[in-house]
Simulated assay, not measured.
Amino acid sequence: MKDLGPETYGELNVDVYDEWHAEHDPAEAVRGLAELIAEGPAGPVFELAVGTGRVTIPLAATGVDLRGVDASAAMVARMRAKPGGDRIPVVIGDMVDVDPGGDDLFAMVFVVFSTFFFLPDQERQVRCFANVAERLLPGGRFVLECPVPDVARYERNQTLETYRVGLDRVRIAAVRHDPVEQRFEGHHVLITDKGTKLAPAFMRYAWPTELDLMARLAGLELRHRWGGWRREPFRGEGNYVTVYEKPAAQPS
């Protein structure tokens, strides 16, 4: 796909995002993040890619000093229209090198629901790790919710899947896989009696060991890797949660 920008996904998916992801209950992520925040150093928390606030709003409601960034003004506007969403400070910008403003360092930076992989190449992903590390307090954590790449589902590096079938609508996904660039690119397609809606989907995936190397380059250390927000054992499949930590300052 040409002419992709950091705002592309949000701007073109905002009208269907909440509906299409309604089956993904954010409660476990909110609970897991709150537990990690309680275990770490005191300080504000920063979310990369707040989207429509599905995790942002309930987490802030627990009393967390939460701020965030999103590249899509339309997604943030949708969040601010929800109860509590207008009270959360959000910067419109690219999570690769966002400047949250002020001199605050953060106790935790997090990104959920695989959104880190919307960064389209390895160089931008490495830069994102470096930027996060600069903005963490000593002992602060970078938390990512990630999918283990499932490349086996692609025959001849492409796939077509059916997500919904109803009397008046069909939702399918058509995706191509580039194994050299480690990219998935495609569309969710909604066909109804009123016409067709295209919602682009793109991702530059990375394996867990590649993420660990990015973290090391940024000066972060792997603290935890779980098979989910309930801290299940990681078994190399499905979605998982990784926690990196900035080493505490050493006494001189």
Rank of each mutant, 00 (worst) to 15 (best):
T192Q: 03
N157T: 08
E181M: 11
V151S: 07
A174V: 12
D193F: 01
T192S: 10
H188V: 15
E155G: 10
D193K: 02
D150E: 15
H187I: 06
A174W: 11
I172S: 11
L160W: 14
E155P: 00
V189Y: 01
E155T: 15
G186P: 07
R156F: 06
V175M: 07
T159Y: 03
P200Y: 10
D168K: 03
L160D: 10
L160H: 15
F202S: 02
F202D: 03
L198G: 01
D178N: 10
L160I: 14
L190S: 12
Y163I: 00
A152I: 08
R164C: 04
A173Y: 03
G195V: 05
G166V: 07
T192M: 02
E155K: 13
Y154H: 05
N157L: 05
D168M: 07
K194M: 04
Y154R: 02
N157C: 11
D150R: 14
A173H: 05
E155A: 14
R169D: 09
K197I: 08
T159W: 09
V170S: 03
V165A: 06
N157Y: 09
A152V: 11
V180C: 12
F184C: 06
H188M: 12
V180H: 10
L160P: 06
E161I: 09
R164N: 07
T159L: 06
T159A: 08
V189Q: 01
E185Y: 03
V165L: 15
A152F: 10
G195K: 02
E181F: 09
H187G: 01
L160E: 15
A174E: 11
G166Y: 09
F184L: 14
E155N: 11
V170I: 12
P179V: 10
L190V: 14
V175T: 15
R171Q: 05
V151R: 05
H187R: 06
F202G: 02
A152M: 08
R176V: 13
F184M: 05
H187T: 04
